[in-house]
Amino acid sequence: MIEVTDLETCFSTGFIRRRVVRAVDGVSFRIEEGETLGLVGESGCGKTTLGRSILRLVEPDRGRIVVDGTDVTALSRSELRCFRPRMQMIFQDAYTSLNPRMRVRESVAEPLKIHRMGSRTDIDRRVRELIEEVGLNEEHLNRRPYELSGGQNQRVVLARVLALKPRFLVADEPTSALDVSVQAQILNLIRDLGHDYRMTCLYISHDLGVTRAMSSRVAVMLEGRIVEIGRTADVLDRPSHPYTRRLVDASLTGPCASLERLPLPAAPTTVEVRSGHWVEETV
């Protein structure tokens, strides 16, 4: 179970005139065990920063993150390193996620070696198991990333993640660079493995079709805030926030709501429009 409370992550930009950008601005939500929460929003809304903040790949400035009963925000550097295997992340570009000089065998074995999970023969056996689980075979073990397709590289990344048997996975648009037929293979794989490994998942995407297929609940992010959250069918079929309506319209054919910037309240309040479906009030 994942619980995020009032999370805030800021970046300062500008060399002479410092400016603070609040990329994640007071975000709170829960993900139940084994559940997948979809996170949607436009480029630059803070989706990726939120995912990275939860894993402390960027340090949040404020707020609390509890993963499986452990307060991640309170962990020291060394404690955090020991906790890392339990929360993992996969990225959009599998090719750049992998070390170009490592063969698949070495890439998949690397996390097992780092976290000292078994002897050399154990690791070798586990690598073979993992590679089969993600739908590759022995002949791929000696290949390097440039000798594999985008979909195959994403499978290798998945094998690396699964090696650690994580409890929580942040998937950051893992299929947005893939063709539809390969995307379908990878999405099915993530869904099945997520189920087999009983993983809790935060699935980040800007594609509402993918989000619908992958998640039971969905959160909509705008300018660092979650403006709407609820069951996938409620949020995407009966959107209450004007921004969600716009996102839904944009992915349909036919007339589309205006693409002007929405004015947002400075001090947001959230209301429950139906059971488990929360929406930020607009000005």
Binding site: V182, Q183, A184, G209, A213
Partner: peptide, 18 residues
């Protein structure tokens, strides 16, 4: 047909092989 069936909105049935 396979391409269309692999869309998430249309059942996400992948085309076998590559």
């Amino acid at each position: 047909r396979g391409l269309l069936a692999s869309l998430p909105e249309r059942g996400m049935q992948p085309i076998p092989g590559s």
